[in-house]
Computed example of a mutant assay.
Amino acid sequence: MSLQFSVLASGSSGNAMYVATDKQKWLIDAGLSGKQLEALFSKREINPKELNGILVTHEHSDHIKGLGVLARRYKLPIYANTKTWQAMEGLIGSIPLDQKFHFEIETVKSFDDLNIESFGVSHDAAEPMFYVFHHQGKKLTLITDTGYVSDRMKGTIQNSDVFVFESNHDVDMLMMGRYPWNVKRRILSDVGHVCNKDAALALSDVIGDQTKRIYLAHLSKDNNMKDLARMTVQQMLEEQGFVIGNNLKLMDTDPSVPTGLEVL
């Protein structure tokens, strides 16, 4: 029995992740066009007809752009909390009632051999939430699109085998960049996005003996770079006494190139 996953796409242009066990196959977010998502599925030999459903984190376009198309095309159930469903009205087109399911914040749902736990984050959406996947003692956490990582969040995600963790921007790049001040202020706010340094600080509180891999996710194409994010997080973690290498690895994600189909 194994827990498998691939970060299919991660970034401001679109987000999607695949998680599977022997009995369950799930897509988390569908923030690219249907055509782009199908191309990503093909790269990882994922058959969308076999998906058990789509989990939604929040209603921003880079997380739901292809949601309606994909759900209608393959008759897939969609799971989201009540406020997110309300916010998505008019954004994803008509969804048949038998494909609409509620997954409320701070709850756990069991699907055969997979337990999925939802938890709230701090972001400027109706009721944003992310997920922890539990299978046979293994724990996989997805957390992006949050302005900060609270103690409550840390308690939920503590000691995951794998973290897919927001490292959105470098503050200096953001401040010197071309974005207008109101956008910069939103990104830097408590309902914006976590920067590289804050990602490292939060990770230093949640990495445990079980933790093997950290995927730095949702990097801004304008205000960050993979090498810079990795270097910043690694340096700060090493200053906290963590050893980045064979037993604890920092990994990249990409807006258009899926990670390998990893096995826990």
Rank of each mutant, 00 (worst) to 15 (best):
A9D: 09
V7D: 00
R73M: 10
F242L: 06
M129A: 01
V191Y: 05
F101M: 09
F133G: 02
K43Y: 01
I46K: 01
T211H: 12
A217S: 13
M153Q: 14
N159W: 07
K221L: 09
W85K: 07
Q99E: 07
S13P: 00
L174P: 13
F5C: 12
E127N: 15
T82G: 05
K109I: 08
D252N: 11
I214T: 10
M17I: 14
I64N: 04
M88I: 05
F5A: 09
D222I: 05
M17E: 11
Q240I: 06
G147H: 04
L219E: 03
D252F: 12
L250T: 08
K138N: 15
W26V: 02
R230P: 02
K226M: 13
S33L: 09
A80I: 04
T141V: 15
L51A: 01
H123C: 02
T21D: 06
E89H: 11
N159F: 07
M225H: 14
P128F: 01
S204P: 13
L67G: 08
F111A: 06
E127I: 08
E106G: 08
P96W: 04
G208D: 04
S12E: 11
L228C: 10
G208C: 11
D113P: 10
H102G: 00
L51Y: 02
H63F: 14
D190I: 11
V257D: 11
A71W: 02
K35Q: 14
L248W: 09
M88A: 06
T146W: 07
V69G: 04
Q235E: 13
P77S: 03
L70F: 02
T259K: 11
L201G: 00
E239C: 07
L91G: 04
Y18S: 05
Q240M: 14
G155K: 15
K35W: 12
Q24K: 14
L203R: 03
L27T: 00
